[in-house]
Structure formats: C-alpha cells, structure tokens
C-alpha cells in the first residue's frame, strides 16, 4: 500500500465499526434477553442502600474544576514539546537550549500555582 493513501487508514474505521457493532449488539441482546419484572421500588436509585435524600446534582469541591483547567494548560504545553522531541537530534544544542527556556516558563507557572495552593488538597 502506497504511503499517504487514505485507504491505509481504512482499518481504523473498520475497527470502529466492529467495536461499535459489538457494543450495540450486546446492549440490545441484554435488553431483550433479561427478565423484565420492574417495580417502582426496584427502579429507585440504589445510592447506598437506604432511601435517597435530595438530588444528586450537588455542587462539588472547586478543586476538581481547578485541576481540569490546569490540565488543559499543561497538556497543551506537553503537546507542544512532542514535535521538538521528534526532531531533537536534528535541532541539536540550540534546540535544546530553546526548549529549556520553554520548560523554564512552564516551571515558573508550575511553581506559581503550587505557591498559590491550587495543588494543596489537605485543608
């Protein structure tokens, strides 16, 4: 198969179809095969075994949201480093020094959020 041809990537689509087909058919099979003796009590949410109180869509700790935002920032910076890593040998010392500057900028941000206490979980 020649390089760059789109047919080369067709097996990924094929795998997706096989996997999606498997998931769909199994879901349908378990829906059709299982017994259906539903009662109102059975369909209540189990939660922890005793009667559920109130809605579950409650506010949660802001720390989780903070982690998500920090992840977006850092993951983008990590992705920036991939093209450099692939060409590391060609870029040589100059490229390495430039990347050190980039990492230094990343580390300044890292120490800032650390000092700000964004990564402190124990109160």
């Amino acid at each position: 198969m020649e390089e760059g041809s789109l047919v080369q990537y067709a097996p990924i689509a094929l795998m997706f179809l096989v996997a999606a087909g498997f998931v769909g058919v199994t879901m349908l099979a378990t829906h059709l095969l299982g017994p259906k003796r539903k009662t109102n009590v059975k369909l209540e949410s189990f939660e922890c075994g005793i009667e559920a109180k109130g809605n579950a869509r409650i506010p949660f700790n802001i720390k989780y949201f903070l982690v998500a935002i920090l992840f977006v920032l850092f993951d983008i910076e990590v992705i920036f480093m991939y093209p450099w890593a692939v060409n590391f040998k060609e870029l040589g010392t100059e490229g390495f020094v430039e990347m050190l500057l980039f990492i230094a900028a990343l580390l300044i941000g890292f120490f800032y959020i650390r000092k700000k206490g964004a990564l402190t979980w124990e109160d």
Partner: peptide
C-alpha cells in the same frame, strides 16, 4: 451478565446512562 435484568433507575438520565459504558468499552 447478559441474562440479568436491565435496570435503569427512574431518576437517571436514560440516554447518557446507556452511553457511558458504551463509550468506555468502545
């Protein structure tokens, strides 16, 4: 697993409830 009764709680969001495990498996 296949032969067990399928229970989707009344208070849950039904479409997303089925979509969750499907995405995980896919």
């Amino acid at each position: 697993f296949i032969m067990k009764e399928e229970i989707i709680p009344n208070v849950s969001n039904k479409i997303l409830f089925v979509l969750g495990p499907s995405i995980a498996m896919l």
